[in-house]
Design a protein around this nucleic acid. Structure first.
Lengths: 218, 218
DNA sequence: AAGTCATATGACTGATAAGTCACATTGATT
DNA sequence: AATCAATGTGACTTATCAGTCATATGACTT
């Protein structure tokens, strides 16, 4: 948490610092980010910085909290009553909320991507991993529910498949970042549909019943 | 490429340096790795180091080449005649070759994981991305072939699904690293089966024909 | 005007890094 | 034994970093 002095700052100064921080963390991972550059960009003395924040991590977490806040703002309408729709619709809504966030907060999205990309940083384990594991738990619950309802095959490895589906959300964003660069509304929408169709039905061609020859090793 | 002086070194000295480098890159990303620590561990002078390698990256690439070499050794038997088996069997073989590599080269595996985890490093873009894109191309070809043969639904987004499947190879390793820690033979084998079954058939429960309600937004 | 106190400052500390270079050592050849 | 080229060495240079601290500022109170 930033110190009181930070919250006492005139708004424009506080946001100048936040903007400088976002600019920095957009380009450099937490480790590589430089307080020196941040204070230079924000136009404050280094000593001042340490009157607002206890250290670099303090500032970073302040920015991360903004990300979580914005993400939640995009996700919460979807999550208001998660059981009212079938799992595939819900999954689609969850993926789409990721898109809404990315579109309204491209710079924060970039920071999130950078953080996720940098799994060795202590911050990843401290911050992302616990968030991820909550997301895992949610997907596990969802899938268990789906099996109960009869929507989902009962023979799957629930923890592993939950994990995969939750990570594929991130993969989809990666794919887009790598291939389309600019996240384009309709294209992303069809990609989400494609991905959900894949998760739902797989790739095998279901002419009559010659499903794939897997189910090997009994 | 290391300099001639490195290849002229007595074998035990050369491998002492390689071992020290592997120990370092196992624990620290390329950026965070320290030449100082490596030379200390290897018991050579820093000046000597720069007579063997032009810089830190030179050494790192030398280690990466060893990884590629070993990976290829595990993969090439599978790839000798990739078209002789169906795509699901081939996929399984590819995944299993990843396991073979991890089991016979756990330390190199660790370095690979660290590199993949650290997508911001310039080395990632320079080295992994091009390797990945070759792997993508292979999977795309494979899937196109599968569609041609009628094994795979023709309505999928080939580049995207290829990308997903190629990345799920990495995800599977991640999952194992996170959950089982020690990669255990039989457990991994069933996980691979599970994953392929998922890729093949998806998660939806195919009682009669009430497949999932996707295919939304025409 | 004097005093007080939260805030502002940037030179400084101490640590670590990559890469260099003048000099030392070695071992084979003459 | 003398020579010499290849190889070995670690102190040194230059750079950067996170974080500190003595001192300055300026707004507010008395």
């Amino acid at each position: 948490m930033p110190k009181d002095t930070f919250f006492n700052l005139p708004k424009d100064k506080a946001s100048r610092i936040e903007e400088a921080a976002i600019d920095e963390f957009m380009v450099y991972s937490f480790e590589a980010a430089s307080v020196n550059r941040i204070v230079a960009k924000a136009g404050i003395a280094k000593g001042s910085f340490y009157q607002y924040f206890s250290d670099k991590k303090d500032l970073f977490k302040h920015i991360l909290n903004q990300i979580v806040e914005q993400k939640m703002a995009c996700l919460s309408p979807v999550m208001a009553n998660p059981m009212s729709v079938d799992i595939y619709t819900l999954l689609k809504e969850i993926y789409m909320s990721g898109l809404r966030f990315a579109q309204s907060n491209p710079r924060l999205q970039k920071i999130g991507n950078l953080l996720i990309a940098d799994r060795n940083s202590p911050i990843y384990q401290e911050f992302v991993q616990e968030n991820m594991s909550r997301s895992d738990q949610f997907f596990q619950m969802l899938i268990a529910k789906g099996i109960e309802r009869g929507d989902i095959r009962p023979d799957i490895d629930v923890p592993m498949i939950s994990w995969m589906i939750s990570r594929m959300n991130v993969l989809l964003a990666d794919y887009y970042q790598e291939h389309v660069k600019l996240v384009l509304d309709e294209k992303y929408l069809t990609a989400v549909d494609q991905l959900i169709s894949f998760i739902c039905d797989g790739i095998s061609n279901k002419r009559s019943d010659d499903t794939c020859q897997n189910e090997s090793s009994p």
